[in-house]
Structure formats: C-alpha cells, structure tokens
C-alpha cells in the first residue's frame, strides 16, 4: 500500500524559444511509504513542485507512471482521480490558497463540501487549535496574516485525514515557533499512518524526516 512513481519525466517547452524543450523532471522513480516523512530539498527550478504535482495527480507526466495500490492514477477518469485526490490525498500548495468569500471554517471544510459531505466542524476546530489559529475559525481570509493563512491551508489538507500528504513549502510564511509546530504536526500525522512528502528549503526539516531526497536539475541526487 504505497504510492509509487516509475521513471517520471515531464517536459516543457520554453515559450520564448519554441524549439527548446527541457525536462523539469527527468526519469525519477521513488516510493512514498506509509508512516514515513519524506523531505525533498533542492534549489529553485530543480523540479520539486513539478514532481509533487505529478505525484498527486495534478500534472500529467510526459512519460512514466504514478501507481497507487498498483493502479496507474493517470489511467483513471478525471472525476475518479479528483475523488481519489479529495479523499486519500491532502495537498498543501505553494502560496496563499484561501477562497476569499468563505470564512476559515468553510475554507477548511472545502474538501468535504466538494465531496458532498457535511464535515465535522469539531474536528476542524480541533485542527485549527492544534495549528494555533483556533480562535480564527469564523474570520474571513482578508483578516488573516500570511502565516495564519498558511496554517489554514495545512488544516484544509489534513481535514479528511488523508493517507498521502503533499506539502509544498508548508512553512514558507511561518516563524520558527510555528515552523516547528507544523513539522511536529506533520511528523505526528505520519506516525499515525500517513505518508508525508514535504518540499522545503528549511534545513531544519531534515530533523523531522525519515528520508531526505535532494533534487538537482530534475533528477534525484543521492
């Protein structure tokens, strides 16, 4: 029961030079095991986010496959893949991801709303409390700081207790104290059985990892 990437490759064409194809991810194979925190590091443009997007079913690879429970997720229809992503995966994208017209509680409940579930408000409040923003459940995104929005985004990804968590720079807007709080929380989630992939530039993250990967020019560097 693991998520497995086999010889993943993603090519893009640079718009300024249409003949110039380049591979953002170039033949990566890896396995994300349950109960593990995998930390992926690398310089900007090394292909970390592209790899994560392919692993969570958001970006179709140019070649290679992503298998979950032995099935290629890109062989699924869009609705089945979306359902799978909503129920078994939690994605924390880069940057701010709030829906401006929903309050914090509604934002965190979004995956449930999209799956036509009522969602457990108490669970949401508990999650927000664990992340230090419990008192902001009714606030609107415009009233929150960058760090608070980031933690709201983390709560949303963890809302449905997913098996696979993909976190792209989850601590980018956080101070040291909250960075440690988030990494602790993700570690704890992994210990509870989830597989966590963290993309970060924080050197301290290695202390929380079970496995450390480094990407260089689209390839895994040992």
């Amino acid at each position: 029961m693991a998520l497995e990437a086999l010889d993943l490759r993603k090519e893009f064409i640079r718009e300024s030079r249409s003949s110039n194809r380049f591979a953002a991810v170039d033949g990566i194979s890896l396995t994300l095991e349950k109960g593990e925190v995998t930390v992926m590091m690398g310089r900007s443009g090394s292909g970390k986010t592209t790899l994560m997007n392919m692993l969570c079913g958001l970006l179709v690879p140019s070649s290679g496959s992503v298998k979950l429970d032995g099935d290629d997720i890109y062989a699924l229809s869009d609705s089945r893949l979306s359902r799978l992503r909503g129920s078994r995966m939690g994605v924390i994208p880069q940057g701010q991801t709030a829906l401006g017209s929903l309050n914090v509680l509604q934002n965190v409940l979004l995956p449930c709303t999209l799956c036509r579930e009522d969602g457990d408000e108490e669970h949401v409040r508990e999650l927000l409390g664990r992340l230090g923003i419990g008192e902001l459940a009714e606030a609107m995104p415009a009233e929150l700081s960058g760090g608070e929005l980031r933690r709201m985004s983390i709560a949303r990804a963890l809302m449905r207790s997913p098996e696979y968590i993909f976190a792209d720079e989850p601590t980018a807007d956080l101070d040291d104290e909250n960075t440690a709080l988030v990494f602790d929380f993700l570690k704890e989630t992994a210990r509870a059985g989830a597989s966590v992939l963290i993309i970060t530039h924080e050197n301290d993250a290695s202390a929380y990892s079970d496995r450390l990967l480094t990407l260089k020019s689209g390839r895994l560097a040992e």
Binding site: S82, R85, Q96, L99, L110, L114
Partner: peptide, 16 residues
C-alpha cells in the same frame, strides 16, 4: 483562477 485551482487540488473534478 487561483481559487478554482485550490478547489481542484481539494478534490473538485473539471466538471465540478
């Protein structure tokens, strides 16, 4: 667009 992308990441299909 960013909001729709967030919905997509959170499990919304293209049809949704």
């Amino acid at each position: 667009r960013r909001e729709f992308a967030v919905m997509r990441v959170s499990g919304a299909s293209r049809m949704k």
